[in-house]
Design a binder for these strands. Structure first.
Lengths: 238, 238
DNA sequence: CGCAGCCTTAAAATTACCTTAAAAAATGCC
DNA sequence: GGCATTTTTTAAGGTAATTTTAAGGCTGCG
């Protein structure tokens, strides 16, 4: 474990639970931000001045239930999430885990166990989420340079104007150089939401436009390759 | 591509549990290696031909108890580990988690919950640990290397162009090396939908084309074998 | 030896993909 | 808010590649 003090977001509408668990977690060396409903929890997460290392969330909360909160957190973060609930049915457990929670503990619980599980999750998180995972700001391929800080593409030193969608597609494919993406996967990543057959053509049009912009000969692409029947791939550089 | 099959090591001295859980995990799309004591489990982990994505281990096992096994696994691997135990005392749980287990589930349990927890652990593991994910996206057999990220096949370092259907058939068979697939099973996996008699020949044509591409002598195939009356099998590597 | 199962090859059929332009929607400026 | 501009989506024609179908021949087994 690193030396710094980790901050845990603890959200439960039962004040006694928040107080009790806070005690144990603080005793174990954590810093705890305790709140009593889902909305507050979400607000804490949106604040820039409080970095949360892990969340311990009750399911049944006013303002925003735990499931919704898990989903929202997962849109932007990989932080460990542990769910607490008085529900003992398994379908609720499975739903929580499917939504992206990392653990699910039913009440009543032993606070020491919660503490151990939080520690285990954080240990794992910081072991696996190495500094090497730090995002590169620039991705280079041949004469192309994608700058993700400024959201620009340059080819041989000259900026190529991209539309938002073109940029997002290229970003996805260049970040995952070599990997084949189906049209539906591209759609889901770039547009979000569900893919329908008719969206096929939309993706293809954008791919075509992107090729016009980045390839020397768009009809014989060097970077943005088609894998017929499977999808598209940004070529790994040689 | 993202849909490869994960392999779970399942170790418990109660055969009924191994059988039951295997059923559920296999139904969820996992490949399961079931063993009945700690020593066997450790032996499986030392084998080079079986890459284990996650382990589900009982604590009280002959040959090597679960705690020892967790410690040994953690010496060399970050794979997700889930512990099963009849013990309900919390100190055992906490010890397991401190040793490096990622989850601890007390018996009796719902197999669906175990499955969901395995899935959650794997999801997290491969989201946070990208290099590990990539290592497993290649399957090697002799001079053949199937790369499932880029959807390419290379033979002795040179890329062999495959059509989408050829690629899918080969993927299926190489992922399940050694296993016989009937023509109808191949059809259902690769094409989806129902198999009719007339599709027999379609499958055979593709197999023939695939042999042309991957075998040194397609008429005397070394990799892609026919099991007369039963189906086809990609030979296990020697 | 007969026959079912399998293999191979080539032609017919189908499909996936590409491009282009028009319609629709979104954005930015005055 | 109106309007010009830009972006995105939809529609449609064309083509190369892939897939399916058909059919002759080979192989292994009872």
């Amino acid at each position: 474990m690193e030396d710094r003090k980790y901050t845990i977001l603890l959200a439960d509408d039962e004040k006694e639970i928040v107080d009790l668990l806070s005690l144990y977690l603080e005793n174990a060396g954590f810093s705890v931000i305790g709140v009593f409903n889902g909305k507050e929890a979400f607000d804490v997460l949106c604040r820039k001045d409080a970095f949360i290392d892990a969340a311990v969330l009750d399911i049944m909360m006013p303002g925003m239930d735990g499931y919704t909160l898990v989903r929202k957190i997962r849109e932007t973060s990989n932080m460990p999430i542990l769910i607490l609930s008085a529900r003992s049915d398994d379908s609720g457990k499975i739903l929580g885990l499917d939504l992206g929670a990392d653990d699910y503990i039913t009440k009543p619980f032993n606070p020491l166990e919660i503490t151990a599980r939080v520690q285990a999750q954080l240990r794992r998180y910081y072991r696996l989420n190495a500094p090497a995972a730090q995002a590169q700001e620039r991705i280079t391929a041949g004469g192309l340079v994608l700058d993700r800080a400024s959201c620009t593409l340059t080819k041989n030193g000259r900026e190529i104007p991209l539309t938002a969608i073109e940029y997002r597609i290229l970003c996805l494919l260049m970040e995952n150089r070599g990997r084949v993406f189906t049209k539906s996967r591209i759609y889901e990543h770039v547009w979000g939401g569900d893919f329908y057959e008719s969206d096929d053509n939309t993706v293809m049009v954008h791919i075509s436009k992107l090729r016009d912009k980045i390839e020397d000969d768009p009809r014989n692409p060097v970077y943005l390759k088609t894998v017929r029947g499977l999808g598209y791939r940004f070529e790994k550089e040689k």
